[in-house]
Each structure stands twice: as C-alpha cells, then as structure tokens.
Design a binder for these strands. Sequence first.
DNA 1: ATGAAAGCGCTAACAA
DNA 2: TTGTTAGCGCTTTCAT
Lengths: 333, 333
Amino acid sequence: MATISDVARMAGVSTATASRALNGKSTVDPELAARVMTAARQLSYQPNGPARNLRRQEAAVLALIISDVENPFFTSIARGVEDVAHEVGYSVVLCNSDENAEKERRYIDVAIQERVAGVILSPTGESTTVDPLLARGTPMVTVDRPLTDRTSDTVLVATLESAREATAHLMAHGYRRIGCITGPSGVRTADDRLAGYREALRAAKHPSSARLVRRTEYREAGARRAMLDLFDQAEPPDAVLVANSAMAVGVLAALKELGLRPGADVGVVAFDETPWAALVDPPLSVVAQPAYEVGQAAARLLLSRIEDTDRAPTTTVLGARLIARGSSAGPVG
Amino acid sequence: MATISDVARMAGVSTATASRALNGKSTVDPELAARVMTAARQLSYQPNGPARNLRRQEAAVLALIISDVENPFFTSIARGVEDVAHEVGYSVVLCNSDENAEKERRYIDVAIQERVAGVILSPTGESTTVDPLLARGTPMVTVDRPLTDRTSDTVLVATLESAREATAHLMAHGYRRIGCITGPSGVRTADDRLAGYREALRAAKHPSSARLVRRTEYREAGARRAMLDLFDQAEPPDAVLVANSAMAVGVLAALKELGLRPGADVGVVAFDETPWAALVDPPLSVVAQPAYEVGQAAARLLLSRIEDTDRAPTTTVLGARLIARGSSAGPVG
DNA sequence: ATGAAAGCGCTAACAA
DNA sequence: TTGTTAGCGCTTTCAT
C-alpha cells in the first residue's frame, strides 16, 4: 500500500511538503501541491490512520455505545449523532452493549485504546464502568440515563413527567385500576416511569397497589409474561402504562391471547412511537420520545466538550409528547 | 496517559519484556510478568491502539457497513456478525451508509484508512465503490446483495425463489390480480423479488401487467403512495407482494385509508418478519429472512478469508421461510 | 516555502 | 529469558 514517502518521491518533494499539501495547508506552492495531489491519485494513496492518530494523539472518531441496536429509540439517537458528527468531519462508530455491563466495559476500553475523540453512551447502570473514561478525562456525554453523580454532560427525556401525564390521561379517559409494566429496578428510565405513574395516581387519590406493577427486562417476552401475570389475579387492571415499544408488543400479544381488546377492555399507553403504532387495531397511544433530537444534542455537547474540556457539565432535558390514539379512548360498559 | 515505558520502568524491566508480559507471551519469567501486570494495573495502563496497529499493520476490528440502521433486517445481521466476531476477539464497528453511495464510499475509505482487518457490506449498488477495497486486497464479504462480478465472498438470501413462492401462495389462496411493490431498479433484491413474482405469474399463466407493478425507494412513504396509486386505476389488484417491512407499513396504512381489509379485500405478503406482524389485524403474512444467520455466515467467511486471502470466493445462499397468516387467507365474496 | 529529522507508542528481530 | 534497537507512517518543529 502506498505511503506518503511514495507520494513524495513521485512528486519530487519531501514528505513534509507532501503532508502539508495533502492536508491543504496554505503554505505550499500551488504547483508543488498539484504535483503531490496527482501523485497521490495515481498511487491511490490513502493515509494510514493509525500512524496519523499516533502522531496526532487523537482520532476524528466518536464512539456511540448504546444498549440495544434493535431498539428503534436507540437507532434514532444514532441517526441524530451521525448527522451532526458528519457535518464537522467526524466518523461515528456504533457499539452495541446489549444492556450488558461487561460488554459496555469492553467497548469503553476499546474506545480508550483507540483514543477516540469522545464517547456518547447510554449507561447500563453501574456508574463505575465509566470510571476509566472519567479518569482519563475522555470527553463523554451520557444519553437517556444519567450517571448518579452527574459528572458528565447528560441528555435526558422528561420521562417521569411523561409517565405522569400518560397515567393522568388514562384516568381522564375513565380507567380506574391502572397498572404499570416497566423495566428492571436500577435502570433509571424504568424507575422514573414507575415514579411518574405513582405520582399521578397519588395526586388523583386513585387506588395504587404493588399488585398492579410488574418489572421485567425491557423486552417483548418478559412484558408478555408480566401482562398475563397481571391478569391472573382476582382484580386485574383495566389499563396499563408500558415502558417501551418492545414491551408494548408483548403486552398487545398477551391481550390478544386473553381475548381482550385494547382501549375498550384495557387501556394501553406505551413509551416510544413506532411506524406500526398507528396500524394496529385499535391504534396504539404512545409517548413519543424525541430520540433523534437527543442524538443531535448529545453530539453537539460532545463536540463542544472536545473543544473545551473544562466547561462545567450540563444536563439537557427534552420533553416527550403524548399521542393519544384508540388504545386509550376509554373503557366500554 | 501511561505508556508501556512507564509500566516497564515501574516494573524494573525493558519495554520488550513488558510488551511480552502484557500480551501473555509464554517466554517470560512468571515473577517478572507478575510485576509487570501489577504496574500496569497501578498505572491504569491501556495500550495505545494506533501505535499497536501501526506496528502490527492490522487492527482486530471488522467494519460492517449496512444500508439502513433503522431496518430490523440489517440490525439482525449486525447481531449475527457481532456474536461471531466477539467470540474470537474482534470488535465490530457499525457504519450506516443510508442507501447512499457517497456515504458508502466515505465509510469504505475510513475502513481502509483505519486498516481494519476486513469489511462486511451490503453494497448500495454501483460495484465501483468497492474497487478501493478490491485493489488493496482488503478482505471483504458482501451480504444481501451480490456484486455484479462476484469477486468477493457473498452471502445471499434465496429471495427470487421466496418471491415466487409467496406469489404462488397468493394465487393458491384465490387471489386473481396480484400486484407487486418493490424497491428501486438496480437494487438487486428489488429486482430479484420482482423477477420471482413474474416467474410465478408466468408459470401459472396468470395475468401479468406493468400496471400492477410499482417501484419506489425501500421506505414507508413511497410504498404508501405506490399502493394508493395502484388503487387509483380502473382495475386495481386484489393482492400485493411487498418487498420489505418498512414498505409493508406504508401498504397497510394505504389500505386503511382506502377502507380495504387486508386478506379479505386485498391479499398481502411482505418480506421480513417483524415483532408486530402477528399483532396487526389480520396478522400479516411474511417471508421471514434468516438475517441473524446471514450475519453469522458473513462473519465466519470474513474471518476465514482474513486467515487465507487466496481462497476462491464463495457464494452462500440461505433460504427464507414463508409464514402464512391472515393477510393472505383468501378473498371474501 | 521547503526539507531534514525527531518522535508519537508499540512490537519484533536480533543479540546476548 | 531478557534487553537493545530499529522502524511502522505520519506530522511537526526547527533550520534554511
């Protein structure tokens, strides 16, 4: 593979001049620059990234470590990050931690070793996994979930408030015994959604009971089982707040099995807008999170922190929007 | 940030010994090795990736360039690739070419510059974008779509045959005028699905007409418009074959707008199984592509090619499975 | 404006 | 088994 020395030799200049020409430095004779560019083209020269990064002590690469590539919420974030990063010449590498602290730690190590310019991550939970990043002062932004001590820039969605609003919406539409299916204890979004749900019930002096709440991993199968379990009781709920879209699939599947109709028999509001939410019968009411905007905001914060490492950490909270559809239109009978 | 020299100094050995110890080479005194490891831990030593890669002339990283991160088919492939790669110590970086030849070229350049060990990609179309890869002999596997000249390992799904089978299935269930909504001309999967559809009609001596076929980008909005357009004719189809799941959303949305019921009024079979296919009413018949297995196979092929660059290129074709549900149960009346 | 030369951190060939 | 040393390809002083 051609190196910069080959290019320099062919153009009849030193490697220093070749480097300057290739990097568009102004201090180089136009005629020489042209010779260099021609030589580079003829040799199909591609700079050696590791060599450049070694010398520069930094790569124009951002690492984005997300907890689930198959979750549309996170892929939308990825799009937002990419679009902002590409505008200013950064590449983005996507790493899938799979809600697994071990994989997360591994990818953080890779990011450090590759000396990426910065890291955006949705922390799996334990704030200790990011210590290596903090210790080295690697610019970092957390999304979706905060670290306990807020030592980094953070971009969040007002998820507690949205859960409260969604629960109030269910009550306003006549549902009386509202349940909640949320993610694992310790996962901040799961806890917040539950807290918002409880606040709304308390404010309305509605019955609230641990028997109406189920916690499970953020996946379809767990949510389906949780829903069946809720309805295996003497007094099942007449509505549920569901904490993400994969879970919503499980909940709707469970209702189908039980022969119950969303909306009329059991009110449903789920977090995350999806392409299919409007297609099911009745259409699914959702809390639409501004995922793409979260990604954009995170990327901008990260870039600004790369510029200025000393700036104090900030927390950005974006609002979510309740989209009311048939699945929360009100009970029948 | 601590370097290997710092570690060596602290352990009282040379950098060479430190390097050997850190890399688990057997030819190092256990006691010295222990001293090195301790020093490394105390200094929070993390190897400098660019330096190592520069020296080794290769990085234990695979690049996976897919055409749409938001398409579940491709994210499943990504999971398959990751699982295989991680087993043998490779990292995977995901790049989103967004069905855009320009972005694809850009990511290919990045992959070359970073000297990744190999590349897996779903080529956007023009086979010329991969020339730089071929020219440098970078190990490469293409997935989902072949290059015109099959100069690389390729993993495909038997998509033409599946389209034929799905179309035959629609005919067998009593649909008479079957339409097809597929992707852009020149995109191999789109062309194959159309060809399979046509073969099935021809074999059954069914009416076939250009007026029953629409081509559009592989997205929801285009498919919705195409479907509305199909039904804006004197003799609309009574069934459609749809080329991916995003398009299926658009098609089902169009039917809803038209007040037509899938299955009873218009038969529908779409490519790609999704979590929600069984949830809509009636459930959606699909051609389930083995995406995860495609990813696994591609990763294995790539790793074997990294081992042996000279092996002749192979083509692997995996079968897809038709899952018949209510949306193709047969017309009513 | 250009070139010579140093050096980023690491690994591997070679010597001892 | 260990250390010395060269050098991967690039950018960037420092001289000129």
